[in-house]
Amino acid sequence: MRIRELLEVLQGKVLVENHGLDEEIPLGGAADLMSDVLAFATEGTVLMTGLTNPQVVRTAEMAGINVIVFVRDKKPPPETIELARDSGMTLVSTAYTMYEACGRLYAAGLPGRGRIKIENGSW
């Protein structure tokens, strides 16, 4: 799915633009737990989250994520915006809840990771 299409589906607003709207997003994922993000995200995943602190941007950067969507119309603080600008992250905000944002994207054809087998642990 292209970023442009994602914006339409979520009726989203771009807060920080670091990627062309025609760039492809291969997968979607959602989490408020940063360790979860680090565990499931693969290169290029779009992250839906309700957290807006700068660590979300850092975490996404480490996980190879390019686009973060803040759900429920949450506005990130200036530090988060600034860090996103510096680290090349694209930020989007949508008024939909986490559940609905994910549901709409999934219904529009954006896949997730499927079932994840975690080794070395039971979480």
């Binding site: 989490a31 408020d32 940063m34 360790s35 565990a39 602190n53 979300v56 070395n120 642990g121 979480w123």
Partner: peptide, 15 residues
């Protein structure tokens, strides 16, 4: 509250 401290850090590192 910041999304950390879920006790997954070391497992993530090990993985």
């Amino acid at each position: 509250d910041m999304g950390f401290g879920a006790g997954m850090g070391l497992s993530n590192i090990k993985r």
